[in-house]
Design a binder for these strands. Structure first.
Ligand code: FES
Ligand code: FES
Lengths: 161, 161
DNA sequence: CTTAATAAGGATATTTAATATCCTTAAGGA
DNA sequence: TCCTTAAGGATATTAAATATCCTTATTAAG
């Protein structure tokens, strides 16, 4: 079980967009170059973010993407779900109903107790992701990444936004 | 991102084995029939459980599998990891190092802050799975599944163990 | 001792999902 | 008018999940 590589891409792109001055857009081309990933494929991830309402886009020269909300309003969960979808990682095929002791067509009242545990764990994962916003991430980055790298990168991005 | 169907199979098989009287074995064939899944493929999952030390097997007629520990000593996490492996669901390809502002070969001190959040969430998922044992599951099942179904199934299993 | 049943595991096929590229269209700015 | 861009459909490529088949060694039952 593994998340798509687009999740890493989307998170990093949002992190960059969160540092962009108001009104500026950043194009797929620039984001792809910054992260060293294929532009056309990254575009699919960005379209997912756009459909989820996390970013907004504009066309034409100097077009691209910007956040549609403040960094404090966008969580890791929002971004992960925009790329991966909201369905649980555990899928219950109800193999319990294949039990030959049951009459055919029998259906229980509630969910299988095993599935319930798995779904609770999935929820714990989502809760954790929901607890961190892009604003939180920005704070951490400013604490842990050398200032000169942040500055140089910010300059590089601004030249292209 | 989705867990394999074998996870559901393995959890249900362990649940059945947990209800087996001491000394009895249950064969792949019986477990496959009980759950309505392909015997040869289920066998791979059971081999995983065996290699993880959760179950032990014996050959020959009346052979099969039984738990290698008490139900209280086996957690959902043990079973899930035996089938899915222990690697995190989030893989960081360190796309941050593709940043053209960095000198080639630059490596940071710690992990990327984004990866860290994803790994923390993965850990929260595992913590939740670790908090539920087969003994806990048994208690829940006895509370939620009609007694006659449990009894009939138990009889069906014992005839074949 | 012989025989049938079984787990283990290697090899391979099939199906599905992830990854990636290509191309067309419509919109926006110079 | 021309160039740049996002959106999205179509398709190709690659990897992983799912499934089957077959061989071997081991064990218990007859
Ligand atoms: S039937 Fe799906 S987890 Fe129990
Ligand atoms: S470089 Fe992998 S998550 Fe940041």
């Amino acid at each position: 079980m593994q998340l798509r590589n687009q999740v890493e891409w989307a998170l990093h792109c949002c992190s960059v967009l969160a540092g962009l001055p108001a009104g500026r857009y950043l194009s797929t081309k620039v984001l792809a170059e910054l992260h060293g990933v294929p532009k056309e494929y990254l575009s699919k991830a960005l379209q997912g973010l756009s459909q989820a309402g996390l970013v907004e886009s504009t066309l034409g020269p100097s077009g691209g993407y910007r956040l549609a909300k403040t960094p404090g309003q966008i969580t890791f969960l929002d971004i992960v779900e925009a790329v991966e979808g909201k369905t649980s990682s555990f899928v219950c095929d109800n193999i319990r109903y294949n039990n030959p002791c049951l009459r055919k067509g029998y259906r229980a009242d509630g969910a299988c107790a095993i599935a319930q545990v798995m779904w609770d764990a999935d929820q714990a994962w989502r809760d954790k992701l929901r607890s961190v916003s892009l604003a939180d991430l920005g704070k951490t980055l400013r604490k842990t990444v050398p200032a000169d790298i942040l500055d140089k990168t910010q300059g590089w991005v601004l030249e292209r936004s």
